[in-house]
Design a protein around this nucleic acid. Structure first.
Lengths: 174, 174
DNA sequence: AGAACTTATCTCAACGTTCAGATAATCAAC
DNA sequence: GTTGATTATCTGAACGTTGAGATAAGTTCT
């Protein structure tokens, strides 16, 4: 079997690890557990974020585009390339997202004066109002998601995740 | 601006946090950073796992089903309900996955003797051989993904993720 | 037994993404 | 300046998931 922390509740990954140690005990179960937890937590977090975005009539991908434009500062305008790098999706996905947001009147496409290949996507006033109204609640929602950790634990977790991200090359300048 | 750890490389989320503190400085940036890192890391990990699965002719969802059946122990057989809970997807997704794996000859559907509504999905010998051959490399791949953390840091990260998972109710018995 | 409810799985349309490829513009080098 | 390579975006088919609903079987209550 596997050593368990007696004083804490078991999670689903504990069971998964137990199953592996019964059936393939020679496999190193620590990375299975750690990456399993990372992925399962991500699903839970996704769900919690999506529920909040839906209150504002948005899905996660739309919220992400609006937030990226908003945090870029005035004039709240970026080209598609910047949006796809920030979102870690393909160019086709950005085309579709901008199409949808544009149909909702939250962003508009403008030709880029310097580069006629490029398109500048800009928040409309309605888009800015929406994301400005939604952000404080979004952050409160994120705080709620992390509520189980005390301040020191949050700093620890953030540092560990960052260390892995740096190792994986997630260091592009925006 | 934001306090930075001077001795470590910056990651993309550091830039995102800087942008927010310039344009909406009153927002609490810690949860933005932490959840942003969790989600970005998950994308990187997904990609790294998928690349390995592809070497064995599988995608992530197929690997997940085979691994779930394998770790359940002999006779490597579960009903669809158990598979969807483990994978955190809907029943329709499991139907499709089992269809695909069945077409590849890696699993087979059998009627459940006790409950005629239920279907038992079982690894075929070919399916068992494939997942048994793939697991050691998969674990080595996961170890590589985590290579930037020393043993103590891995234990810390695992404990923090587990704490959040328990708080979010990821505690179903398998 | 019969009715009402729950559970297990499958079906199918809608949707968003990826992947490959098309188009068009810019840049580099000769 | 023209050729060739690169960059920016869009297009469209293929794919997997979701969500709602259908079917069928098991369960509970009277």
């Amino acid at each position: 079997m596997q050593e368990q922390e007696q004083e804490h509740e078991r999670d689903t990954v504990d069971d998964i690890v137990d199953q592996w140690s019964r059936t393939r005990p020679e496999l190193n179960s620590q990375p299975i557990a750690l990456i399993g937890r990372l992925r399962r937590l991500n699903v839970r977090v996704d769900t919690a974020l999506r529920e909040y975005f839906a209150e504002h009539g948005l899905d996660s991908s739309e919220f992400d585009v609006l937030a990226t434009l908003r945090r870029s500062g005035e004039p709240y305008e970026l080209n598609a390339r910047a949006l796809l790098k920030s979102a870690m999706v393909t160019s086709g996905a950005i085309t579709n997202r901008v199409d949808r947001l544009s149909a909702k009147g939250l962003v508009e496409r403008n030709p880029c004066p310097n580069d006629r290949r490029a398109v500048l996507v800009r928040l409309t006033p309605a888009g800015k109002d929406l994301i400005d109204a939604a952000m404080p609640g979004h952050v409160r929602n994120e705080e709620r998601i992390l509520a189980a950790l005390d301040p020191e634990e949050r700093v620890q977790l953030d540092a560990l995740l960052k260390k892995l991200l740096v190792a994986h090359g997630d260091t592009e300048r925006l």
